[in-house]
Design a protein around this nucleic acid. Structure first.
Length: 270
DNA sequence: AACGGCACCTGGTCGC
DNA sequence: TGCGACCAGGTGCCGT
């Protein structure tokens, strides 16, 4: 799913409906998402107010009076707001009724997503200790990526998608950014020139921002808080495409670390 | 340590 | 129309 732009879209869409709202009722329709949902959370969470909604990496964070709710959308998750009376959908797993009579619904066909409740902020912070830099942060620049890459021989695409180094970039946006930067996905990270690193960072930021502006990419399951799809799939240059928008060459693909990897053999020479 | 392989799930699509 | 194989935005464990 949901890479950074889809999570950001979800956060932006949810915020006006749920921020500063008390949680009146929390319902788990099943307890086996990727990680178990613990029944004891319900009592602890009900009655608390959602103070703030934010994104970290591919996670949605809801800061409560005490602790944080941490959501991950997995591959097929989405969240939407329903007005009373709510219309239920197949694969709705969590309902959260708010003080404003709206209901936050978590839907996830494949159930790779999850919800965690951290009562202690320290535990919440600790959860992210092995996560890397936010790609839209100012500190993420060409010099940073070049430095990060120096001791790594793995393909640059694999590095981009490793959340330990850079968060939020997944299979779609890694392919898109590498295409615009004219870098072959298999290029060993430590062979990037400084100029390439600078180009790549610029294109990562540009593609993520463009995707956020378009409301994310909907290949199949993703929808925003209004239950509407994103539009960025119309702007994809290489992911899932047949011909290069620049040179009209046939788009190539191969498997890299188990993921289908799209590229233009002419624009992205090794 | 770093990497590939695969499991976790459902559902859509394609070929027979 | 039906069935099996294969594929999908992510993550994490297990083996080499």
């Amino acid at each position: 799913m949901p890479e950074l732009p889809e999570v950001e879209t979800t956060v932006l869409g949810l915020t006006p409906h749920i921020q500063q709202q008390p949680i009146k009722q929390l319902q788990f329709m099943r307890d086996n998402l990727r990680y178990p949902l613990e029944k004891t959370w319900i009592k602890q969470i009900q009655g608390q107010t959602i103070q703030r909604v934010s994104r970290r990496a591919k996670y949605i964070c809801m800061t409560l009076d005490e602790g944080v709710l941490l959501w991950h959308l997995g591959m097929s998750g989405s969240m939407r707001i329903e007005e009373n009376p709510i219309s239920t959908q197949k694969h709705d797993h969590i309902y959260c009724q708010l003080g404003n009579a709206k209901t936050l619904c978590y839907n996830d066909p494949r159930r790779f997503g999850f919800l965690k409740y951290f009562k202690q902020l320290d535990d919440f912070s600790a959860y992210f200790k092995n996560y890397g830099i936010e790609p839209l942060a100012k500190a993420f620049n060409g010099a940073y990526l070049w430095q990060l890459s120096q001791d790594k021989s793995q393909p640059i695409k694999t590095l981009l998608m490793n959340q330990q180094y850079i968060v939020g970039v997944g299979n779609i946006y890694a392919a898109e950014a590498l295409f615009y930067a004219k870098i072959h996905p298999k290029t060993p990270a430590n062979q990037l020139t400084k100029a390439q690193a600078t180009r790549l960072v610029k294109q990562i930021k540009a593609v993520l921002q463009a995707a956020i502006a378009a409301g994310g990419t909907t290949l199949k399951d993703f929808s925003n808080a209004e239950n509407k799809p994103g539009y960025f799939q119309q702007s994809l240059a290489v992911y899932g495409q047949s011909f290069c928008p620049v040179c009209q060459s046939e788009i190539g693909s191969f498997r890299l670390a188990g993921r289908n990897t799209f590229y233009c053999p002419r624009c992205q020479k090794r």
